[in-house]
Nucleic acid binder design. Structure first.
Lengths: 207, 207
DNA sequence: TAGATTGTTAATCGATTAACAATC
DNA sequence: TAGATTGTTAATCGATTAACAATC
C-alpha cells in the first residue's frame, strides 16, 4: 500500500531502521527480519512491519528483508539517496564539533558553509576545508546557493533572529541546538536538540 | 490528582514547559496561562493543562499560573531542584563542546569528570576546570563517586562497551550521542541524540 | 513439503482534544 | 459582578499490538 500521509512518528523511526541496517550490512549480513530488527531496537516486530507497510512491500514471506534492498529503499524514502548541503550557523564549540563531525557524510549530509558574527572568527578555518563566513552575508549566500537545510548552533537569544533570516532566505528545514522553541511558518520543519532537556527527562526517573 | 504512572511522553514535555517558564521569568513576567504557553510552544492549551494535572494543581481559575511557582514545582517534579553530577565519556570535539557547554549549570547539571582512552588526551585540561581521566579508571571512579548519570560521546563502535561498563558501575541514566541503539537493562534509562537521524527526519519532507 | 515470516486486518490501547462546571 | 482560565470528564482521534492468511 503506497503512502497517503504517513504519521510523523513513523517517519521519525525510519532513520533508526536505516541506521540499524547499515550496521548489519557492515557486519556482512545479507538478510534480516522484523523480529531481529525489533530486538536490536527495542521495538516490536509488528510495529516495524506496520511502519514499512506505509511505503510498500520490502520483504519476502518466510525469509525476511534483504538488507541492502531495504536500506536502498529507506534511503530513497528519506531522500538521502543524494547528498544534502547543510548550512551551519554558529561557530562556537558546538559549531566546531558539528563542522568536524564525521557522522554526516555517510548519511547524506555535508556541511557546506559555516557562519558566525564574531569578527575574530570570520575568516578562520573550521572543519575540514571550510572558512568561517560573516553571518551578515548569510541570507544572500543561502539564496544564491539554494540551500534548504540549516543547523542553528548560536546562543538562545540569537536563535530566533537567525531562524527568521534563514526562513526569509528560503531554508525549509532547521535543526536547532539552541534551547528555545523556534517560531517558524508552517512549511518550515524544525527539529530540536536540547541536551539539558534530555537530561531532565532522565532525572525524572531518578530518585 | 497525584501521579499514578505518568506517560513518558508527558514527562518528556515537562522540560520544555520548564524552559519556557524560565524565559518568561527572565522577561520579568509573573503570570502566564496554558493558552500563552501553548502558543509559544506549538502545543494546545488543553494538552498543557492535562499534562500538568498529572502532578497536581498549579494554577488559579480566571488567572492562570504563577510563573515562579510553576517553575519551582516543575523543577521538583523533574528532580532538578538540586545539582546532578554527570560523567562524560569521550573527549573528542563533541566531548570538548559538552564539557564547555554553558547551558547545563542553570538547568541542574554539572559535568563532574571527563574520560577518554587516548593517552595523548589523558591529563589534558578540558572544560572549565577538569582534566581528562583514563577511561580504564572509569568504573572505579563511578562507583566511588556514586555518579548516576552519564553522557556517552565516543565513536559508535565503542559506545556499547562503554555503556556496559557504566551500567556495571551503577549508572542509571545515559544520554547517548553515539549513533547506535544501546542495549541496556531495564532500570537504566537511555536518551539518544543523533543529529544525522534528525536531519533525515527533516529531509523526508523535502522534495 | 514444513517452517518461517511477511503484510494486513481488526482489536486494543493510549493520547489528544473539546467542552464545561467550578471558581478566582 | 463579569470575564477569564483552570482542572477534569467524556469523546475523539491515532498509534500499537495481536493474530493470521498468504506465500516464500
Amino acid at each position: 500500500m503506497a503512502d497517503k500521509a504517513v504519521p510523523d512518528i513513523v517517519v521519525g523511526r525510519l532513520p533508526i531502521y536505516l541506521r540499524a541496517l547499515t550496521y548489519l550490512k557492515a557486519d556482512n549480513r545479507e538478510i534480516t527480519s522484523s523480529q531481529e530488527l525489533g530486538d536490536r531496537l527495542g521495538i516490536s516486530s509488528a510495529q516495524i512491519r506496520k511502519d514499512l507497510s506505509h511505503f510498500g512491500e520490502f520483504g519476502k514471506q518466510g525469509t525476511g528483508y534483504d538488507i541492502a534492498h531495504l536500506e536502498r529503499n529507506l534511503k530513497a524514502i528519506l531522500h538521502v539517496d543524494r547528498m544534502w548541503d547543510v548550512v551551519l550557523v554558529g561557530a562556537g564549540d558546538l559549531g566546531h564539533a558539528l563542522a568536524a563531525y564525521r557522522g554526516f557524510a555517510g548519511r547524506g549530509f555535508r556541511i557546506a558553509a559555516v557562519f558566525d558574527k564574531d569578527p575574530a572568527k570570520i575568516g578562520k578555518p573550521i572543519g575540514n576545508d571550510l572558512v568561517i563566513e560573516d553571518v551578515a552575508t548569510l541570507a544572500d549566500r543561502v539564496r544564491e546557493q539554494g540551500w534548504q537545510i540549516a543547523i542553528i548552533a548560536v546562543p538562545a537569544d540569537q536563535a530566533q533572529l537567525v531562524a527568521n533570516t534563514l526562513v526569509q532566505a528560503g531554508i525549509r528545514a532547521i535543526l536547532n541546538y539552541a534551547p528555545i522553541t523556534l517560531m517558524c511558518p508552517s512549511g518550515v520543519r524544525v527539529e530540536q536538540i536540547d541536551p539539558a532537556a534530555h537530561l531532565q527527562h532522565l532525572t525524572y526517573y531518578l530518585g
